[in-house]
Amino acid sequence: MGINAPVLLTFVTIICFASTSYTFQGTASFYKPPYVPSACNGYRDDGIFIAGASDALWNNGAACGKDYLVHCTGATNQAPQPCKSKAVRVRIVDYCPKGCSGTINLSEDAFSMIANLSAGVIKVDYAEYYKKWEN
């Protein structure tokens, strides 16, 4: 029993659009430890895969506790090939006020998973991470 090619093509197209419809483009910078205190949780240790949200994500604190999947897509400066071939999942625990050099300000540990630290600021795709994706 063969697969109908037009049906398969339609299905693949729908999956591709569904997977990219909640992806946003922006920039990421990083900050060095210590990672406390934070705007969301005070002096609680939230681990090392965390981030601060700029005004684009912050939404008056509604971003606190949300997880994002962040993937490096390129350089914002002359850094040659800053990206590594990984994505990193981070939790928003802090606010990055006006003047923040990225849409999302990753912990140094998180940034180093997806890019070379020498890049400083990188282009990224990011999407809110939902636990249902784990199943």
Rank of each mutant, 00 (worst) to 15 (best):
A119R: 14
S85I: 05
Y43V: 00
Y95E: 10
A110Q: 01
V12Q: 08
I48E: 12
D45Y: 07
A18E: 10
A62F: 01
Y68H: 04
A75H: 04
T13K: 11
A127I: 13
T13C: 06
Y35L: 05
I14Y: 14
V88S: 08
G61V: 07
G2I: 11
G61F: 08
F30G: 03
G2Q: 09
S21K: 12
C16H: 03
V124F: 05
M1Y: 08
K66Y: 05
K132M: 12
S38H: 01
T76I: 07
A5P: 09
Y43C: 02
R44P: 00
R44N: 02
V93Q: 02
T10F: 12
Q81L: 12
T73A: 05
S38A: 01
I15W: 01
Y126F: 15
R89A: 06
V7D: 14
G74A: 06
P6G: 08
W58H: 04
E134Y: 07
G102Q: 09
P6R: 13
N59Y: 13
P34K: 09
D45F: 00
A51H: 03
N77W: 04
L9H: 06
G65S: 08
Q25T: 15
C100I: 04
V36T: 15
K123W: 09
N135E: 15
N105P: 10
V12L: 15
G61Y: 11
L69Q: 14
I122N: 10
I92T: 04
N77L: 04
V93C: 05
D94V: 05
I50S: 00
C72Q: 09
N60V: 09
S112H: 10
C96M: 04
M113C: 11
A115T: 01
T27D: 03
A28E: 00
Y95R: 15
